[in-house]
Design a protein around this nucleic acid. Structure first.
Lengths: 402, 402
DNA sequence: TTGATTTATTCAAGCTGTGAATAAAGTAGG
DNA sequence: CCTACTTTATTCACAGCTTGAATAAATCAA
């Protein structure tokens, strides 16, 4: 779906629409300032977009706050008629749904508790298609133009195939085409950490310059890597399942079948499992703990439970090693630690910082500023929709051109 | 030195000169075919370069091998008058020197055995300047336009500062400016693994497409990463000292002061040290073993020495883990293992492949083709000169433009 | 109503790259 | 030796994109 390289026009167009989605309605001059474009260029681009019906000019009414001299600005924004996109995140036993309009504004969202792990490929696609259709229906959205779908695992973003995912029982599942058939709409896929990284960078201009490595800790551990605000694409898959890098030769069991993966220390399921073991309760199945259960563990640790503190210490150390590897390999300008796992950052931090320090020389460590962003999974659905919207923008332009 | 982004013209110019350096003299049509450029563009570009005196047209004499119909080609190539560049690699107790003309052809090369580790910054720069000047002198090169210098460690390519290097006793040494003052010529620096990666990619077109991670194993372990044939640049330093990623919590001692780094298993000094320990000889100082010593160890292992085989087994395992991390993080299209360390690839391979397999899922592993390139350190000096030449090309163009 | 002020558009010009026509420089063959 | 043919190189007009400057537009202030 994504073309190899964009024409200058397409790039400029994309920059303009991206800016509008991030900043809200803007007048042409403002866009020019924002993007460092000449007024002539903005005018030209805007004329095209207005012509195509992508943008509309705002009524020059009540914007009067400030100087009222000179010709008033006419702000541009997305046409309401462009339709909307549903963003979906599939977790272990939970589906997160969100409806956004073409401007990127949330119109509705909800989540569904539903175990997905034991479904076959066809069943899963049926369930997803049904859930998505029902959500669109109940949200009164009759103008859904596409679906953006994010999940853990190795996601081939071009073909919409999930090569492997801890969430799925099946390998090499053509999820996008299957859903697309069922829903009659294009379905665009993304690795979940990549989607999260993109969404976070949309909200922080700093993170859109240079290189940003975004480590998402939650149900698993994923990595989204951005260069100049654009997602780095590897040979085939989008984001990396960085959580399955094996850091300890003989560490705890991981969902992937291996041992000592980063995930096996840091992910919710791992912390929960190990906490249960301490309490001599029977080892739980691989069902993911809910947020309350995780909060309870964190609280217990904060109140001084030594055995639990040791767990977080080990996890923090692994996090430090992981960030150390990222710094040594990618030398990013920014490192973001995000996802539900940041809830315990206070507990992780001492060991995290000690491990990071022992891995990297100060000159190297000084390069990357480390941001801890408390982000829940619903930001993620925003990210995947944003990416989908950009693809639709392109398609629209090409359709007109042809 | 390197500008943030190149103008279209500069890009085209660079592509043309790169192609000529790689492929040798070519006629305009051939260049056009090679680069997918229209004859009109090539003509225009070439006219400029001929005008500036960068290129000259070959005498249309003795090229007659093949069809002789039609207007004969006039091949273009670099003017002899453009001068030459010295490429230098500084190792632990060895300096590798090479003189190349502006076409990238080697005119002279030699190496000097000289311990460098215990010199202070000023002393080191004196020694290097003297060695380089003497080499240029003895090679009869009176037209040296610049020096390219590669070494291990964290090299700030923009400012020519070595933040840390196992080779140097000093931190944050402004090596480029120091040498530049002494020699009266511009000095361009590069991390040694990056230089090697670039040189190898110049010789293999495959490696110039997509993403190529190049792991150099020798005195240490370094990583050069290429995207579409261009060196990936992190926030500050060029290549990464990937060898100092700590893979084992309590592994053998590393030169960096840490334990369990990749280097501490794979680098020549590590293998040599551990081999000595087996033989109950006193642990050697950090002097690097020569090629003969390393060959001897490898031969002894090949003949069935179990203790030595175990060393190579452990090293191979670490190599597999390292490549696994690279695949999981960068998802490259190509992985190159190069440097003197490949001499023992047969011994490393079984453990290497087993470790790699246990780290990565087959879908992921299938993406990256693994190339083992037997390359000695003198290829490296070629790489650093190539990069320096490209910078000079740009400077030349800008000089004329101004 | 006029002038000041800010926003938007238009226009000519520059830079880059291309296809098509044209020129150039030879060989092949009579 | 001349003509036809073939391949290489250049020229030229044009298209795509961006820009600075001039111009037009839309409002408020006086």
């Amino acid at each position: 779906m994504t073309p190899l390289s964009l024409s200058p026009r397409e790039t400029a167009r994309r920059r303009l629409l991206d800016a509008l989605r991030r900043e809200g309605p803007m007048a042409r001059v403002e866009i020019g300032h924002h993007l460092g474009m000449s007024p002539a260029s903005v005018s030209e681009l805007a004329a095209g977009l207005l012509d195509e019906g992508v943008l509309v000019a705002e009524d020059s009414a009540d914007q009067g706050s400030g100087l009222l001299r000179g010709r008033p600005k006419t702000r541009l924004y997305f046409a309401e008629t462009l339709g909307s996109v549903v963003g979906v995140w599939t977790g272990f036993n939970r589906i997160e749904l969100r409806l956004l309009d073409s401007a990127g504004r949330t119109r509705a969202s909800r989540h569904v508790e539903r175990p997905l792990r034991n479904l076959g490929g066809e069943e899963l696609m049926d369930v997803l298609a049904h859930t998505i259709a029902a959500f669109a229906e109940e949200s009164g959205a009759r103008d859904v133009k596409a679906v953006g779908l994010a999940c853990q695992g190795y996601v081939d973003t071009r073909d919409g195939i999930v090569a492997w995912s801890p969430v799925l029982g099946t390998r090499d599942l053509p999820l996008a085409s299957g859903l697309s058939q069922r829903l009659g709409k294009p379905v665009l896929m993304e690795n979940d950490a990549s989607a999260m990284a993109f969404a976070i960078a949309q909200r922080n201009a700093d993170l859109r310059s240079g290189r940003t490595a975004c480590l998402m800790v939650g149900d698993g551990v994923g990595l989204g890597f951005l260069i100049q605000g654009e997602l780095y694409r590897g040979a085939r898959f989008g984001g990396s399942e960085f959580g399955h890098v094996r850091l300890r030769r003989s560490g705890p069991q991981c969902r992937c079948g291996g041992r000592g993966c980063i995930e096996a220390y840091l992910a919710d399921y791992a912390l929960h499992r190990d906490a249960q073991l301490i309490d001599h309760r029977p080892a739980p199945t691989l069902l993911l703990p809910g947020e309350e259960a995780m909060e309870a563990i964190v609280e217990q640790a904060r109140s001084g439970d030594t055995a639990l503190l040791n767990l977080f210490h080990a996890a923090g150390e692994v996090l430090g090693d992981a960030v150390g590897i990222l710094i040594q390999t990618l030398e990013p300008d920014h490192i973001v630690i995000c996802g539900p796992g940041t809830r315990a950052m206070d507990l992780l931090r001492p060991a995290f910082e000690a491990a990071l320090k022992s891995q990297t020389i100060p000159e190297l460590r000084a390069l990357a500023t480390i941001h801890v962003v408390e982000s829940s999974m619903d930001l993620l659905t925003e990210g995947v929709v944003m990416q989908a919207l950009r693809e639709l923008d392109l398609d629209l332009a090409r359709l007109r051109a042809a």
